[in-house]
Amino acid sequence: MPREVIVIGAGIIGASIAWHLAKAGAKVTILDKAEPGGVATPCSFGWINASFGNPEPYYRLRIRAMAEWKRLAAEVPNLPVRWQGGLCWDRPRSELETLGAEHSSWGYGVRKLGRDEVARIEPNLADPPDFALLVAEEGAAEPQASARMLVIDAQRHGARLIAGGEAIALHAGGTSRARVETNDGTLEADEIVLAAGGASADLAASSGVSLPMKTPPGLLVHSRPYAPLLNGLVMADRLHMRQTAEGRLVAGADYGGADPGPNAEATARRLFDTMRSMLEGAGALEYDSYTLGFRPTPLDGFPALGRPKGIENLYVAVTHSGVTLAPAIGLFAAQEILDSIRDPLLAPYRADRFD
């Protein structure tokens, strides 16, 4: 009999796990109180990277995830992923030099660029920096669209979607089947995957599992579609920005977005004005909207992935870097749930390390 799994959460992490499980033959039910795409995922910048400032074990996980994005894009036609390259000058030069050298020694394709080279790559920058780092293999995904496509393809492989289904409590552990209390009754399965983003801590607690989390806010501003202004991702000292395939400019104070402050609309308008001032030819660029997301992040800042100690029918999958890590987490979770194989890259990120 195929293993029955309930995946709570249809954001990019839950969608990837559900897709990998369904493709491997599991009987999957996807439960989400929103439509496919989740709550935090639509508010993501979408950057796919193994970029600077992380310890080497986390770099290794992220670089593997970048490779898994390419595998996933080959298996799911028209997945909205582009490998545009990333320019970075969001830190002091001395710090960038140090981080670039470190990542180069790990195998990351970092190039040092001067002002003229930056201007050739991004000719619409109003004031190119004197120094930047370029990683040509970085890219971006359209997060909500990617999650939706993975859910749709998971359904093609037999998964069932319950949209508008809110998980209220979990009952896992012991020898009986796992149960999820929802706003419309109780579901049972051999295992529950908890990929509910910011709601994960309370749901884990309902089954006696401690999952300390923080959910910092992040505001991103979005323009209306416009003629091409950017060729790739730009991590500038004033803000981070990219242009989508349909021509929308997306920007935040960093890739996770800005703190909205007391007036989110005013913050968004200021960010938009900053973005427009940084680009030549953007005089007719129009503001469209902002998104305000709350980034689900385990307390130490790193992913929480796996079964809590002593609970064999609950798998936790919570991380802030959801877009970058989603394909690898989906693959590794499916292997662990179905075949009891835990990838060594997940060793530092046990879900029960906070106990």
Rank of each mutant, 00 (worst) to 15 (best):
225 P>C: 10
307 R>F: 07
312 E>V: 06
233 L>N: 08
325 L>N: 05
287 Y>T: 05
236 A>P: 03
270 R>A: 15
287 Y>V: 09
236 A>E: 08
249 L>S: 03
319 T>K: 09
197 G>N: 10
231 N>D: 10
195 A>D: 03
197 G>F: 09
275 M>T: 04
203 L>I: 11
196 A>T: 00
199 A>Q: 08
201 A>R: 01
247 G>K: 02
245 A>W: 03
306 G>C: 08
226 Y>G: 00
208 G>C: 11
247 G>H: 01
303 P>I: 05
249 L>C: 06
283 G>M: 00
192 I>W: 05
237 D>W: 07
264 A>P: 06
266 A>G: 13
294 F>T: 01
270 R>S: 13
321 S>E: 13
227 A>C: 01
206 S>N: 13
296 P>E: 11
191 E>K: 09
313 N>I: 05
323 V>R: 04
212 P>A: 14
276 R>Q: 15
239 L>N: 02
261 G>M: 05
306 G>H: 08
240 H>P: 07
242 R>M: 01
259 D>E: 15
266 A>Q: 15
198 G>E: 13
202 D>S: 15
233 L>D: 00
258 A>H: 04
216 P>T: 13
318 V>A: 06
293 G>I: 03
309 K>L: 14
214 K>L: 12
260 P>G: 06
214 K>W: 11
197 G>K: 03
308 P>E: 08
257 G>A: 05
282 A>S: 14
269 R>Y: 09
295 R>Y: 08
302 F>N: 10
319 T>P: 10
194 L>H: 00
